[in-house]
Design a protein around this nucleic acid. Structure first.
Lengths: 134, 134
DNA sequence: GTTTATGCAAATTCTTTGCAATACT
DNA sequence: AGTATTGCAAAGAATTTGCATAAAC
């Protein structure tokens, strides 16, 4: 899916900054912070980046992940194919600092006590990843 | 367990503010923010609260939970009995805003892919709780 | 042509730092 | 007495708001 198609679908104006930032989310599988975008798009004002992130989040295009170091990151929330919507859990390795995706665990199969329903699994599990464990 | 015993055990000076704040953590099962403490202890300078929270966290007395609204909260991390240390997952209901504890799910039984190890389960699951689901 | 987005400046909130006065051991 | 903690002022970082200009529809 292309950025321009998504903006049209969500009835958002197709500005250069929005197209660039949205495409970056589509290309990147890892969560992205406002700082990441600032260095990636130096010509875009930082306030504009904040506004675009807030807009995309309100519209449900991206969702928020807050790290334990209080850094707010965002990830694209819709799948490539529009059949199923599997938001996944992110895993942050405290050794290498890398954030990866745990595709096995989703909102659907997360073990919850009876009576509870999950809406978001926008969280981070902290530990050591496979590579650093070797 | 009493606050004064814990401070002694961790070789921290027993000041009035530390005793009051630590006792509050012991009495309260829900995560506590710096703001909560500010309104609970109006005579304690906000900088002092920050410093006490940072100290307790470094020493491992409390641990950090970052909410999706970016509010940093802390919870007491040591169990009443010192046999087992089960950090648990917190569940935030987006309907009533309440944060509760999922005691069934711990770091030990959290479903992870092979090769990964969990260090912290200090995160928040978002959804609707049993009460609000009725 | 009308509505919305952007850039700049400034305001707000959260958190940390420096330093002198105070409290703990 | 000596060391660590506190309070106050100020600095720093992250994010939001107001408003005039510019771009999208």
């Amino acid at each position: 899916m292309k950025a321009i198609t998504l903006l049209k679908k969500y009835q958002l104006r197709k500005t250069a900054h929005r197209l660039g930032i949205l495409q970056f989310f589509l290309d990147e599988s890892k969560p992205i912070s406002q700082r990441d975008l600032q260095s990636k798009f130096p010509d875009c004002d930082r306030v504009t980046i904040y506004r675009i992130l807030n807009l995309f989040q309100e519209k449900g295009l991206i969702y928020r992940i807050v790290d334990t170091d209080k850094v707010v990151r965002y990830a694209f929330s819709k799948p490539q194919k529009e059949i199923h919507h599997h938001e996944h859990i992110h895993f942050k390795c405290e050794d290498c600092g890398n954030i990866s995706c745990l595709t096995d665990i989703t909102a659907e199969n997360f073990p919850l006590p009876e009576g509870y329903t999950i809406r978001n699994v926008n969280f981070l599990v902290l530990g050591t990843c496979k590579k650093c464990n070797q």
